[in-house]
Design a protein around this nucleic acid. Structure first.
Length: 1113
RNA sequence: GCUUGUGUAGCGUAAUUGGUUAACGCAUCCGUCUGAUACGCGGAAGAUUGGUGGUUCGAUUCCAUCCACAAGCACCA
């Protein structure tokens, strides 16, 4: 017996199947039972269990799950090691928030030890919730043996990779400009700068300073800045190579002295009102108002201007090198300012870069340890050397001063005839999210990976990766690689992987450690040399590792560089670090000394994450693989889009529009949710997540399939039908419609397998939807219903059962990657009773779960495109007939005599003839007649040019040709059809056209009711004879009696007796079609008489009658 | 600001890669069928394919430009 259910309950199925999977260890078996030689490698990008999972995680993980399951289905072995990302800023932040401390307090209020302990506890806080989601959504990943990035074995593997890069000379310590918060005393990551609210609109004092050209009396180059405090550090001016500049004569508005100023021609109007040759000093007014200039005395391009030397603006400190030159910068624009940019290499990233390119020195002083430092210290104060402003904060850091330093600098410039213009300027400027104080761009020491050295190689190898969608790989990722900068590895934090570099005091000797054994050796060496008694710490994190002192070759003590590494390096190392180091291989000098099964699991066949990982995980995986081993680390990558709310807004807790993944799964089930996400749109498009869409999927796909299954079980249980090996009817011997649906099924199987192989889940899902709804349920089952419930078991019935059964089993397999629960439920219900036998025979029904089954390639020999075509005709012709009936209000139960079909071509008639019976039964018509063209002029035809074939040949004559062809009359068309060729004359050119250059359709059959669909035309004979009317009435009676049976809750197989009240029309119908009625409603007796009670019914023609239906005892 | 992507009926998506009635589903309205299916079927209404220009005999499709949305990267004088 097949299990039958009252109604579909997907969440209940989830529960049941989950239990089953766990009890029978199905996930484990789905890996263990596969050939270890045939692997499909998948990498799990580690989530952080520090935050709660959202609905977008369901999306991302559904994608991962689908392709892993699909490849399992194809017989491959897909190991799926889970992982946890345990380091990083968000974790530190949540710990600090909880403890109510700031970074400053670490080491003071709380020891680093305690702090890190707290991080370690916090990081797995939501692990249980994550595991719960993983389980409930049906994501199969190994959670029992995950890699965890804070474990020693992981850390030392990362060290090994770092050491490998170090040995290749790819790591260096350098000075770069980074966002820095003086108030908090820490550098900030771009992540922190992009926190909401970090950029604020503020009003700054801006200045246009006058830089005096060397060896002139009063010629100046003017440059604008919104940060006057950087002016003492100026060492160059940048211009645009092709930008035109002008030198104009005028007066200084503050000193009234005559001056010449150079600025971009495009910016002239920003500072001057007009040319006024008779201008006097009195015309130069203070304030913001532009005033005139006398005249343009010279014009030049930036390229010509470059090389000009000028005097230092604020000569507090002398530079070491060739400074104070005009140089060319690619970033210079004329959008605002003067088109000339003031360069202070210590306080701007562009500045530093362009200065380096032009050998411009930075302005530096020596700190107390004789190390170079900029003119502003780490607290944001000017150094002593900047005498006028020494000790003053450059920005507002809570000091109580009369005036901001910027204003005093401007005043000083004004007095010295060095200021051309000043005004308050409103702009957005980054602030430290913690202290709310402005950020400075400040040069900091950092460790870098020379990623830019591998720029070309990374691009090259990237081209071998299959990106979904390609635009992300070529565009977003490709462009990023083209402009690759060195990777800043340093993070001055506490909870993360420590940089394994030890240096001597002078920084001249350094050692990069690549494993715990190596560290042990070095510690022993140091102990001996320095007389210490150190041990390798049990935990490689700070602060323990900071205490380790190593020794250089010449006996100097070496201390660890205090930085941690960027957490992105952690996750990018997972292909190697998830397995840990194999010390034997390491000792043997293996270049890839990682534990098994590293060799079989590198590189990955497939990874998937959100697009936001393009420059995150996708990049770090790629960069590390290319730099360390000159390979790709993944061959296929799917980057999914965002999950937005149904209005296209980003989901956020704040807006309250975030969908709760648990509620969604609980209410709709995992399968409907997953299916909706895949079928609705390509996963790389943003998804407008709408619960109604899930409901629709539940109804249309799962509901339909459930009903199809219910239908099958209803009759299969009555007939006690089960598939039996060796007894099945060869497909070739089955009826047309069976062969058709089997053909469709194999076409589907082919399509679905192709699409999944090509990482196109949406296309695969839509193909399944179409098959289930349009073909299986609403054509095959609908037309075959009678075969299941009519009569005794015979070959035809047997064929019907087998066909439907095969369709259901294959469909379960095909949909199983996306809908793992329902498909398993379906597969198991179908195979439960036959599994034992199937095991003996080794058939595909033998498996304990659909996820252990093997999906065979589509059987192409069963695909019959001709058959599919004629069934398509049948569907369309039926639909057309029904539409004519509808138009003329003739109900389907009323039989009609004849359908008339104009013959399109010889093949058409043959095709339709094969499916004639199906059409006639479906639309309740007695016969089909074909109209050939013998009777000229009977059919009214329409002709259209075939643009596809003609367009190429005719080119611009196409328009004239189309016009000529559209004007063909019926005789022209007939002549063309007879000869098969036509000579088209356009202008003085002749074109020989053949039949395929035209599309001829039948437009009308005079005297008949006609409907058309594309090239198909159907006419219907609406004449009603008495006999037809009687049969129509008989069918009405069948319908009423069936309804009564149903109302009375009779069993499907119950026999009945029927008495109908007297009426001449009814009597005639009963006389002529009594046997038909009896057969349909399973009546042993049918009579006209006086019903004893019974049901009152209405019949067409406003006929009233009473029918008495009784069960036969 | 730069880069990338998206824009088709109220909503969600198609369109054989440049070929002529722009398709499907949901929702709405009207009608209808059913002994698996409150499901199906039939019909109606609903679109200047974001705007403008261009290439072409022909553009939803190619190009340019603008607009809107989203993301990424910058944010700097």
């Amino acid at each position: 017996m097949y299990k039958s259910y009252k109604q579909l309950n997907l969440p209940e199925i989830d529960q049941e199947i989950l239990q089953f999977w766990e009890n029978e260890k199905i996930f484990d078996r789905s890996i263990q039972e596969r050939d270890p030689e045939k692997t499909y490698v998948f990498y799990e990008g580690p989530p952080s269990a520090n935050g709660l999972p959202g609905i977008h995680h369901v999306m991302a993980r559904a994608i991962k799950d689908i392709f892993c399951r699909f490849h399992t289905l194809q017989g491959e072995r897909v190991d799926r090691k889970g992982g946890w990302d345990t380091h990083g800023l968000p974790i530190e932040l949540s710990v600090e928030k909880e403890l109510g401390i700031t970074k400053d307090d670490i080491g003071k209020k709380i020891s680093v030890d305690e702090y890190n302990q707290k991080c370690r506890e916090t990081v797995m806080r939501y692990k249980d919730i994550w595991d719960d989601l993983t389980r409930k959504m049906g994501y199969w990943v190994d959670l029992d043996n995950p890699y965890i990035t804070y474990e020693n074995s992981y850390i030392e593997s990362v060290w090994f990779l770092l050491q490998r890069l170090h040995r290749k000379g790819l790591m260096y310590k350098g000075y770069t400009i980074q966002p820095f918060s003086p108030a908090a005393g820490t550098g900030l990551s771009s992540h922190e700068l992009n926190m909401p609210g970090a950029y604020k609109e503020i009003r700054d004092t801006s200045a246009v300073a006058q830089f005096k050209v060397k060896d002139t009396d009063n010629e100046y180059i003017v440059a604008w800045t919104t940060t006057p405090w950087t002016l003492p550090s100026n060492t160059a001016l940048a211009v645009g190579k092709k930008i035109p500049y002008v030198k104009v004569s005028t007066f200084n508005r503050y000193t009234q002295e005559p001056i010449f100023v150079t600025l971009a021609k495009d910016r002239l109007n920003a500072y001057f009102s007009e040319a006024k040759p008779d201008m006097t000093a009195a015309d130069a007014v203070p304030g913001n108002k532009p005033y005139p200039y006398i005249e343009i005395v010279a014009e030049m391009t930036g390229a010509e201007l470059a090389g000009t030397r000028y005097e230092q603006l604020m000569p507090y400190v002398k530079p070491e090198g060739d400074a104070f030159r005009v140089i060319v910068g690619d970033f210079v624009s004329t959008e605002d300012g003067t088109g000339i940019v003031h360069i202070a290499p210590t306080f701007g990233a562009d500045d530093m870069r362009v200065a380096k390119e032009n050998d411009i020195p930075a302005l530096l002083v020596k700190d107390e340890f004789d190390n170079p430092m900029p003119l502003v210290d780490r607290q944001g104060k000017f150094v002593a050397e900047v005498t006028d402003f020494a000790g003053r904060y450059v920005k507002d850091y809570g000091q109580k001063e009369d005036r901001p330093t910027d204003v005093d600098i401007v005043i000083k410039l004004k007095e010295e005839n060095k200021l051309f213009h000043s005004e308050k300027y409103l702009h957005s400027y980054p602030h430290c999210w913690r202290t709310d104080r402005p950020v400075l761009y400040y040069p900091l020491d950092s460790w870098f990976v020379r990623a830019s050295d591998y720029k070309e190689r990374m691009s090259e190898l990237n081209k071998t990766i299959n990106w979904k969608p390609t635009s992300t790989g070529e565009g977003r990722f490709g462009k990023w690689l083209e402009n690759l900068q060195d990777w800043n590895l340093s993070r001055s934090r506490f909870w993360g992987i420590p940089l394994p570099i030890w240096r001597t005091e002078d920084g001249k000797q350094e050692l990069c450690i690549g494993s715990i054994p190596e560290l042990t050796r070095e510690v022993e060496k140091a102990n001996k040399a320095l007389g210490l008694n150190q041990e390798v710490p049990k935990d490689l994190h700070r602060p323990y590792i900071d205490d380790v002192v190593l020794v250089s070759e010449d006996g100097q003590a070496m201390k660890r560089e205090l930085d941690l590494i960027d957490v992105w390096f952690d996750s990018g190392s997972m292909p190697y670090a998830q397995w840990g180091l194999d010390y034997e291989k390491l000792a043997a000098g293996d270049e890839q000394p990682f534990n098994a099964p590293f060799g079989q699991s590198y590189p990955a066949n497939f990874i998937a994450e959100g697009v936001d990982q393009t420059r995150g995980w996708f990049y770090t995986l790629h960069a590390i693989a290319v730099m360390a081993y000159d390979t790709v680390s993944f061959k296929n990558v799917v980057s999914n889009g965002l999950v937005l709310d149904k209005n296209g807004q980003k989901m956020s807790k704040r807006l309250g529009n975030a969908a709760d993944p648990f509620k969604t799964l609980e209410q709709y089930g995992a399968d409907a949710t997953r299916w909706y996400m895949m079928a609705n749109s390509d996963p790389w498009d943003n998804l407008k997540f709408d619960l109604e869409g899930i409901e629709e999927v539940r109804r249309k796909l799962f509901g339909t399939l459930f009903n199809t299954y219910s239908f099958f079980t209803l009759y299969a249980n009555i007939d006690k039908w089960q598939p039996q090996a060796g007894q099945s009817i060869p497909v070739a011997d089955r009826p047309e419609i069976d062969r058709w649906v089997i053909s469709k099924l194999n076409s589907l199987s082919k399509e679905v397998q192709e699409q999944f192989s090509a990482y196109e889940p949406t296309r695969a899902c839509r193909a399944v939807e179409r098959f289930v709804d349009e073909h299986l349920s609403n054509w095959y089952v609908r037309l075959c219903r009678r075969r299941f419930w009519k009569g005794e078991m015979n070959a035809d019935k047997q064929a019907a059962y087998e066909t439907l059964y095969e369709c259901l089993v294959t469909t379960a397999q095909l949909m199983s990657p996306v809908a793992p629960f329902f498909s398993d439920w379906l597969y198991r219900n179908l195979t439960e009773g036959v599994k034992d036998d199937a095991k003996k025979e080794g058939s595909r029904l033998q498996f304990d779960s659909v996820h252990l089954s093997l999906l065979e390639p589509a059987n192409e020999s069963l695909i019959d495109l001709g058959l599919e075509e004629r069934m398509d005709y049948a569907q369309r012709i039926s639909s057309l007939v029904l539409s004519i009936r509808k138009k003329d209000m003739i109900r389907v139960r009323q039989p009609l005599q004849k359908i008339l079909l104009p013959v399109l071509d010889a093949g058409f008639e043959r095709q339709v003839e094969e499916v004639k019976d199906l059409i006639l039964a479906e639309v309740n018509v007695k016969e089909i007649a074909y109209l050939r063209d013998d009777e000229e002029g009977f059919l009214k035809k329409r002709i259209k040019p075939n643009f596809k074939t003609l367009g190429k040949r005719l080119g611009k004559n196409m328009k004239a040709a189309a016009q000529a062809i559209n004007q063909f009359n019926q005789d022209d068309i007939a002549a063309l059809e007879k000869s098969g060729t036509y000579t088209l004359v356009v202008g003085d050119e002749n074109f020989e056209l053949t039949m395929e250059d035209f599309e001829i359709t039948t437009e009308d059959i005079p005297g008949w009711k006609v409907a058309t669909d594309g090239s198909l035309t159907v006419a219907l004979d609406l004449t009603l004879t008495d006999l037809l009317e009687d049969e129509g009435m008989a069918r009405e009676l069948v319908n009423r009696i069936q309804n009564i049976r149903k109302d009375k809750n009779f069993e499907v197989m119950d026999r009945i007796t029927v008495v109908i009240s007297e009426d001449p029309t009814i009597a005639r119908a009963v006389t002529n079609f009594g046997d038909l009625i009896k057969g349909e409603v399973l009546a042993d007796e049918l009579s006209i008489g006086t019903p004893n009670g019974g049901e009152a019914i209405e019949l067409p023609g406003e006929l009233q009658a009473t029918i008495e239906v009784n069960k036969r005892s």
